[in-house]
């Protein structure tokens, strides 16, 4: 090959285990003097749900933005091993191409649907690239050729499949913006699934959901993992979701990874507890404060 595609490493170049899906290697993201992510490495595996947790401002969404091309990491490599297409270096790819070619789908913390388009249209826009190809950049459609009609029918079938899955079939013709909040969250996940992703990145999918809706979400995500075989990377604050469905949890604090392992491991990791709840005892208090506390305690007794 005359020109080597820099976004596509050859298979002999890197040794990775076969089940790795997304490898984040030494990723650092600086905004001026602020270090949002500091030398972060972790691996998300195929057909697993990997959760990214951490206190507010830990840099979780920044990690997502680095993976999905909204930011370019200052340092580091993000490598995707696509189950069907081979490997991609995501940090070298232009933003929209990460979704277009490497099939990385994402949702957003604050829902980003197309509010004045119908539910069905939202799911069909998600299949834009497949439909563009089928309609020869819309020309075939303009000439009322059969191939576009066929492709559109397939797109509608896929949309129907997902609408049935989340119980939105009856409201397919509603404006997406008129759906209740929980349904909008689910629709956004469906829309991401309609691009037939290799990996699905969900930014706080359970935010604002009631306990019953959270349970339904768990089922949906487990279904995506088990039935569709799509690996999920998840940012979540709701521990009932995280602990129940995750296969693997990565904990961030101040841009650094502080823990990485199974839910049981992370739950009992003292550094995690410290990050979430603050100090468990007064070990780190300055000596003068400790003395004061001791004196006061003595007086009261």
């Amino acid at each position: 090959m005359l020109f080597h595609d820099l976004t596509r490493p050859g298979n002999d170049e890197i040794k990775v285990s076969d089940d790795s899906l997304l490898e984040i290697e030494h990723v650092t993201m600086r905004f001026g003097g602020l270090v949002a992510i500091d030398d972060l490495s972790f691996t998300a595996r195929k057909k697993e749900i990997t959760a990214l947790i951490g206190p507010n401002g830990a840099g979780k969404t920044t990690v997502f933005n680095c993976i999905t091309g909204f930011y370019k990491p200052t340092v580091g490599r993000v490598m995707l091993t696509h189950p069907r297409k081979g490997r991609y270096y995501l940090e070298r790819m232009e933003g929209f191409k990460i979704a277009q070619q490497a099939d990385v789908a994402r949702t957003f913390q604050n829902i980003r649907l197309f509010p004045r388009m119908s539910v069905l249209e939202n799911l069909i826009v998600a299949q834009h690239n497949a439909l563009m190809k089928a309609s020869a950049f819309s020309l075939a459609g303009l000439l009322f050729m059969n191939r576009y009609a066929k492709a559109e029918k397939e797109a509608v079938e896929r949309a129907k499949y997902w609408l049935n899955k989340v119980g939105l079939y009856d409201r397919a013709d509603w404006d997406a913006g008129n759906l209740p909040y929980g349904d909008q969250r689910r629709l956004e996940i469906c829309r991401a699934m309609c691009i037939q992703p290799a990996v699905l990145c969900l930014d706080e999918p359970a935010a604002g959901l009631n306990p019953r809706e959270s349970l339904e979400l768990n089922e949906l995500l487990l279904g995506i993992r088990d039935q569709e075989g799509v690996g999920i990377l998840l940012i979540e604050h709701d521990m009932s979701v995280v602990m129940q469905i995750s296969d693997h949890i990565v904990v961030l604090d101040h841009g650094r990874k502080i823990s990485d392992g199974t839910p049981e491991f992370v739950r009992n990791d003292p550094t995690v507890i410290k990050a979430y709840l603050g100090e468990s005892d007064d070990e780190d208090l300055p000596q003068t404060v400790k003395n004061d506390l001791a004196r006061n305690a003595g007086k009261d007794v």
Partner: peptide, 11 residues
């Protein structure tokens, strides 16, 4: 409706 969402869908 939303340019950022469009980019996330590979448009």
């Amino acid at each position: 409706e939303d340019e950022i969402a469009c980019r996330s869908l590979g448009i």
